[in-house]
Nucleic acid binder design. Sequence first.
DNA 1: AATAGTTTGTCGATCCAGTGAACGAATTCG
DNA 2: CGAATTCGTTCACTGGATCGACAAACTATT
Lengths: 419, 419
Amino acid sequence: MVTPTTAQAAGTGRSAQPGRRGENMGMLLGLLRTEGPWSRARLAEMSGLSRATVASVVDELASRGLVVLGDRRADGSPGRPGQSVALDGRGLWGLGLEVGGHHVGGVALDLSGRPVFERHDAVPEGTDDWRGVMTRFAALVDAARAAATEEGARLLEVQVAVPGLVDSAHGMVVTAPNLGWQGLAVADEVSGHLGEPLPVRVANDANLSAVAEHAYGTVAGTPDIVVLTGELGVGAGIVVEGQLLRGAEGYAGEVGHVQIDPAGRDCSCGRRGCWETMVGFRAVLHTAAVGDDPVRDPAVDVAVRVEDIARRAAEGDTRTLHALHAVGVDLGRGAAWLVNVFNPGALVLGGFFAPLAPYLIEAMRAEMAPRILATGLGGCRVVQSSLGFTAASRGGAHLALSSVFADPTGVEVTTGGAR
Amino acid sequence: MVTPTTAQAAGTGRSAQPGRRGENMGMLLGLLRTEGPWSRARLAEMSGLSRATVASVVDELASRGLVVLGDRRADGSPGRPGQSVALDGRGLWGLGLEVGGHHVGGVALDLSGRPVFERHDAVPEGTDDWRGVMTRFAALVDAARAAATEEGARLLEVQVAVPGLVDSAHGMVVTAPNLGWQGLAVADEVSGHLGEPLPVRVANDANLSAVAEHAYGTVAGTPDIVVLTGELGVGAGIVVEGQLLRGAEGYAGEVGHVQIDPAGRDCSCGRRGCWETMVGFRAVLHTAAVGDDPVRDPAVDVAVRVEDIARRAAEGDTRTLHALHAVGVDLGRGAAWLVNVFNPGALVLGGFFAPLAPYLIEAMRAEMAPRILATGLGGCRVVQSSLGFTAASRGGAHLALSSVFADPTGVEVTTGGAR
DNA sequence: AATAGTTTGTCGATCCAGTGAACGAATTCG
DNA sequence: CGAATTCGTTCACTGGATCGACAAACTATT
């Protein structure tokens, strides 16, 4: 499970107490990421380490180009002013890729979480088979790496988000109904098309969206969250005590294909009446639009069509509002299970739910309340995601960088990097 | 969240590298608990520490009376035979208490997980109000402590299992429908009746059962499990990567009162059609028995009545089998959510489900399979618990001991303990 | 302007604790 | 009985965290 990337990579031979230093470096780096820049003294207080240790660790982080020392500025309070230590993420990039029905995209983030590269290629339905997607992925990786090199940065790792069942351990997609994929070795395929080798991992898109929401979303920092997301399909991503829930085989969060109504509509997975057929985007279309309404045109990207529907709702179109209310009801009934089971601090509506959230949330809450024993939804806030359709990519890029925060000793010392 | 019990309690003043030693002591103690006794050399291999360190840590554990050194016995293989190091749990006890509709009980375990104290008092319905239960609890604690003292052991902590919504942080029961409790400060109440002070914590009974299943059940060691359990009510306990899932406010696993059918039967929580009304013990009775059938007598303990029903099923009584099949169907539909969301390695049927499991599992599997995207239930085994009705108490006792495994430095050195 | 009071960062002494190497002890195998 | 093997211990070493002390850099006060 643990990827032995960092440990002794740039180690100075052997250490007497392995891990200790790396842990502390990672802890401080993490503090600098979540809480803004701080002085060494404050970092010592926050981390529980002594001031001497913090100074030494900060030096080491600086020698690796991971932090920059700011200027010492007096702020009016008595005492010697502290020198601000800030995360400097410019040197390391992580890349997240994603594939949807109509597009292939990628987002790279640097260590500080700043987007440094973004590309989205429209892929009209039916243009590409899976091979085409793989070469597009590889091209994206090479482009991102070129951009990184140009900025003097290094691309560390790639995470691919796939809407479907993913075997992360082997980098395989078991099945992705909405893409028509089955038993596809995505990690190997992408690796094979790369100019230079690079670690490639694969994960479920909803899971990666949850990572993004936890790191960058409106409820960032909330330790326990559930994210409902989807483009055509519907999936859940769950973060428990700050950690992504993966499950025994990595299939956690696959709620889209719970069969609710055995007599329901056909689902892309081959079954009938899955939750997805009731709350997925196609369900919205089914009731919100008729005939050859342009929003039903499968050739148009879902993101565009969702905006259209949101606009109609905003204009007060009753058919649309009724359809969204109905979806909200079914959404709430399912969400009640999730909230009862996890008692999350927040339930985030991402993907295509996000733009429609204002018209869903009321019905959801009404359905959830009588299904939850604890008052006030057990402290769970239901919120709209602000991350847009690239959440999965951002989450992937974030995960691609996590090894650095786990143990920054793997980052090579940039000779002459400090100052 | 973290209870600062151990850290510097019996510390030797201040340590240069706090935590390090305690971590390693805890790790080795944990290894000795899960994998049987081993020689120092094997422990070194398993833990990744050096032989020298293991020897030193074992010495320290021995000086605290936590391990015993076995005899050096040749096993036929070449080389000097190793001296076995075994967990010696006799000196420390943890106590788990539980309350049901008809009884109050307690189980104490020593560090090695051996039951060392057990008592169950029948409390005919209507005999006690909550005050009575609190004094019974306190009496149990005092009795357990007396027994411990007699054996030369020390009782460390008490965990109370309550079927309901529990605010563990404050030791409060928010609501326990089947007991009629509401806003009750159980921890304080029990503490107040004790002869000598002792840490008392409170948790949900299903959650504690999950702890027990993970530690002592048939699927012990499986990192991700879901436990469905209940006496009158129904609850879930979830273990994720070896850790109990608690949720943002500690309400995780409260699946009993998800409203499935708004027009369903009345529930003890005041709502209608909760899952509990469809799969709880009362649901079994509703269809399996009529009129003044003795199994419907609320004055008889549920455990007894369940055995009666299991016997009828074993004898092939069709009414009973039909009733159980129906419950299995509803159980499977709900379980599908749990399995999709968590992708656990095992789903355990505990509490009153356990004796009936053979007659439920088939229907459950049949309902779950079409609701789970991954083939073969995503690797999830559906198994019958072997722990009986005292699972929650055992889980509580187990948790009550966990602080020792987290950091054994808190245990005082028994002068002259090491032979 | 000088001084006192605060807070910050660094230096040095100290010390805990883990490591590798070497060695004696205890066994099996030839 | 000696060689091979494995186990536990001893020892010197070292990484890395801690504390105390102190200079530096600021504000507040007289």
